[in-house]
Design a protein around this nucleic acid. Structure first.
Lengths: 115, 115
DNA sequence: TGCGTATATAAGCATATAATTATATGATGC
DNA sequence: GCATCATATAATTATATGCTTATATACGCA
C-alpha cells in the first residue's frame, strides 16, 4: 500500500502548481481576508473577465475555493474544509498581506463592493 | 514602494511553481532527510539522467538547492539560507515522509549510496 | 417578456514546460 | 594521455498553460 503516499504527493503537487501562478496565489491571499466577487478580481488584476473566470475555475476544480451566488453576483471564498487546507493555509501565511492593492483601488475610487 | 510586496508574491509563486511538479517536490522531500547525488535520483525516479539533471537545474537556478562535488559525484542538498526557506520548509513539513521509496530500493538491492 | 448586467464556457493561438536523444564536460584510474 | 564513469547541456518534440475573442447562460428588473 505505498500508493497512499504517492497519491498525497501527487495531490500536493497539483495544489502547489495551482498556487504557483501569481494571479491565483494573489487571489487566494485576498480571499484569506474577505470573500470576493468576480468583478472585484477583474478590477484588481486589470485582466479580462474570462481570464479571471478561468483561474477561478481551476481553483474551484481542485476544491480550493467555494462559490456562492448572492443575488446578482457570485462570491468566492476559501474552502476551509479542503483535505489539504492546512497546507494551503500555511503557504498563505508566509505571504505579505495584500491590503495595499485594495487600498490603491480605494484611492482611485475603483474599489468595487458588490453587496 | 508597493513594489516590495509584489516582488515577494512574484518570488513566492515562482517557488511554488517549482514545487508544483511531483518529481521536484519529491526530490525536495527526499533532500530534507539526506543529501542525494544525481544517480540516486535517477534510480528512485526511474527517469532518464538528463531529465533529473534538468529538474535539479531549475531547483538550483532559484537557489532552492545547493550542489557540492564529492569526489566523483555531485551531491545536492537543500539551501537553508534561501530567503524563502521558511516557506519551503513549511511546505515540506506537510508532506508524507518518503522513506518508503528508499526502502523499496533497498529491498530490491537498488539503493545507491555513492559515498 | 425582453433587456442589461454578471459570469461561464468554447475555440484558437502563442508561449512554457517536461520529456527524449545526442553530445559535451569533468573527474578518476590505468 | 586515454578510457570510463558521473553529470550537464543542447536540440527537438509533444503537451500543457494562459491569454484573447466570441458566445452562452443565469439572474434581476422594467
Amino acid at each position: 500500500m505505498e500508493t497512499t503516499e504517492s497519491i498525497d504527493l501527487q495531490r500536493a503537487s497539483q495544489i502547489l502548481k495551482l498556487l504557483g501562478d501569481k494571479t491565483r496565489l494573489t487571489m487566494m491571499k485576498l480571499l484569506e481576508s474577505h470573500d470576493c466577487c468576480v468583478c472585484e478580481f477583474v478590477a484588481i488584476f486589470k485582466m479580462s473577465q474570462p481570464a479571471i473566470s478561468q483561474h477561478l475555475r481551476k481553483l474551484r476544480d481542485l476544491g480550493l475555493v467555494k462559490e456562492e451566488r448572492r443575488g446578482q453576483w457570485i462570491f468566492y471564498s476559501i474552502n476551509q474544509e479542503h483535505e489539504d487546507y492546512p497546507l494551503i493555509s500555511s503557504v498563505l501565511h508566509h505571504l505579505p498581506d495584500q491590503g495595499s492593492s485594495i487600498e490603491e483601488l480605494e484611492a482611485q475610487g475603483l474599489r468595487i463592493c458588490c453587496e
